[in-house]
């Protein structure tokens, strides 16, 4: 069953400029695995060195964060749309408070 994965602008350079991709998958985990095996350069921007989804990378099924669903095991239906959304985060160097 193909589901739609929306690709954010900075990652389209790794998907042949496509802004969305159809992947055969029954769960979110399968969809992400399918996506990163088809476009392997995406991997380092989605996963850390230990192979875990980077902490600032969020995956939504429609408008729901998969962390509040069943994470990788979240089941999909044909009309579901998966979005990859970064938590945009940052900040300055922490001041040394040691004496």
């Amino acid at each position: 069953m193909p589901v739609k994965v929306v690709i954010p602008t900075p990652l389209r350079q790794y998907t042949g400029k496509k802004d969305s991709v159809e992947i055969e998958a029954r769960t979110v985990g399968e969809a992400l695995a399918g996506l990163t095996s088809r476009y392997s350069d995406l991997r380092k921007h989605l996963y850390n060195e230990e192979g875990k989804l980077r902490s600032f990378v969020n995956v939504y099924v429609n408008d729901e964060d998969i962390r509040f669903l069943q994470r990788d095991q979240t089941p999909l239906t044909e009309t579901d749309v998966i979005s990859i959304v970064p938590s945009i985060a940052g900040g300055s160097m922490i001041r040394c408070i040691c004496s």
């Binding site: 954010p8 964060d65 959304v85 938590s87 945009i88 985060a89 160097m93 001041r95």
Partner: peptide, 20 residues
């Protein structure tokens, strides 16, 4: 203890998705 809104920011991903 050392990180807060004074030296960290975070954009709500849901808000970010809506803006996008």
């Amino acid at each position: 203890g050392r990180e807060s809104e004074k030296n960290r920011f975070l954009i709500d991903p849901l808000e970010q998705m809506m803006v996008e």
